[in-house]
Design a protein around this nucleic acid. Structure first.
Lengths: 263, 263
DNA sequence: TAGCGTCAGAATTTCGAAATAATTCATATT
DNA sequence: AATATGAATTATTTCGAAATTCTGACGCTA
């Protein structure tokens, strides 16, 4: 068999949590996983101060693995940290969500475009599998939010993984974390499933039919809709753009702004 | 003044090293900066094992700040780490460079496209300033490689920063690290400056003229050329695709492959 | 000779305490 | 009353040593 450039791309696989950090049963990694789940799920809300004592007690670890976990989360953009002032969960703002939505759309359009053009049979298999899992997860009662989110993410990343670009996948992973955090913070679950599953099914069909234009159009709609929904929910919840901003909610353009937002 | 979504985007600024980690005079950050410079410059070549003792002695720090610095570098994709096996400088491969080139092009095209369309006067000013610095740096003898690279990076990020998208800038930053590392590992300096400066000047003009098509075309050429150059230099240096690959260099398609490579 | 288990040596990971920096709050001053 | 000052407190960062895990070599067995 002939060696091609494509073959030499290491298959880091989708959903790899931290770039080039193969997990192991180290306390640091366990704490990282739990903390990450707590931040992305919103159980640790924006602005939460993560004190040394608090984190050590909550996750039952010492100072070293704690600090390592926090450092990794900060590199992922889920915590912020300054000089000698410890770590806090990043604040959320309308402006950042808009940015996240735009960038996510750009990245996923790129990935899907390449996936539809060059995706292998292996890829199609994984897409179909993950879709099946997703359908199954929807029927079962939503006992655990984390579990459903995991399945949802797996489906999306099965789709994207056809691009065969480790770096693009990595960036999609990072931005998806952000998307998920905002959504779980502000958008309640009840409203989602019906429209969402329809959207997923349509995406699946378009992708398997290798219909590039349709795939891109559906993706644009999907991400724009999701982003606008969360933006609207944030506004409704009274979250201003910047935490320190003076503008009251009444002054914000509101829905008009959201709909006119160029994603 | 009316509040707009754009206004609420926090200005993290270009070239921010680690997402949401505001620097301070902490030992950990100093070690991180030095280690990073050593990896990106190639002074620590791919595959170098970073032992506890070695790093502590080399940078004159204790275990905790060392571990934190290494953890951050791994999150940046400059080191790899597995379970209980410590840290090593990531290996380099043809396949990964091809991926990096592709992704960098996608990201920078996006950023420049938005910059040309929406860049402010403030942005134009910083672009012009950084270009001037770059010209000046070229005349002075290249005493320090790190310093010239810093100026070069600053110019490119001044251009990109017009996109006003913190997340896109962050990803551009991460992928540029990778590009720089590969280039400094395999492409010698003597060949670059003349063609490069011409390219920079053309880019500057196109951008200030708000000529979108020309800007994108020049960027495509610039990145494709740079990537192919480094790919060719890697092949010439005898670096196979995968470190563990069996294929000898003679079997690789070589230049034909490089030129046909779809970036 | 090849394969397997065991054991010392080395390296990484983790803990607990010391050092250093930030914060608070009471007190003094303008 | 408002602001500045400075100990006392709290929190973060760093060090040094203990605990755990990996590595490689040696000897044993089939």
């Amino acid at each position: 068999m002939r060696a091609s450039v494509e073959d030499t791309i290491p298959n880091w696989g989708p959903g790899l949590r931290s770039m080039r950090t193969t997990p192991a049963n180290t306390l640091s990694t366990e704490a990282y996983d739990q903390l990450r789940a707590d931040v992305v799920s919103g159980r640790l809300p924006p602005g939460t101060k993560l004190t040394t004592k608090g984190v050590k007690e909550r996750y039952g670890i010492g100072g070293s693995p704690m600090r390592e976990a926090l450092t990794r989360l900060a590199a992922d953009g889920l915590l912020e940290t300054e000089g000698q002032k410890g770590f806090t969960v990043v604040s959320a703002s309308i402006g950042e969500l808009a940015d996240i939505g735009r960038v996510r759309m750009q990245l996923e359009l790129q990935a899907l475009s390449q996936a539809v053009k060059r995706g292998s049979v292996e890829w199609e298999v994984s897409v179909v599998s993950q879709f099946h899992r997703l359908q199954h997860a929807l029927e079962a009662p939503l006992t655990d939010g984390d579990e459903w989110e995991q399945t949802h993410r797996a489906f999306h990343f099965a789709l994207l993984s056809g691009c065969a670009s480790p770096w693009l996948m990595h960036f999609c992973d990072r931005i998806y974390d952000q998307t998920e955090r905002y959504r779980r913070l502000y958008t309640s679950y009840e409203r989602i499933p019906a429209k969402l599953m329809h959207s997923h099914k349509a995406l699946l069909n378009a992708v398997l039919a290798r219909d590039l234009e349709k795939t891109l159009a559906l993706t644009r709609d999907h991400i724009a809709y999701a982003t606008r929904q969360t933006l609207a929910d944030m506004l409704a919840a009274g979250v201003t753009g910047d935490p320190a901003a003076e503008t009251s909610i009444a002054e914000l353009p509101g829905l008009g702004l959201i709909l006119s937002l160029k994603l």
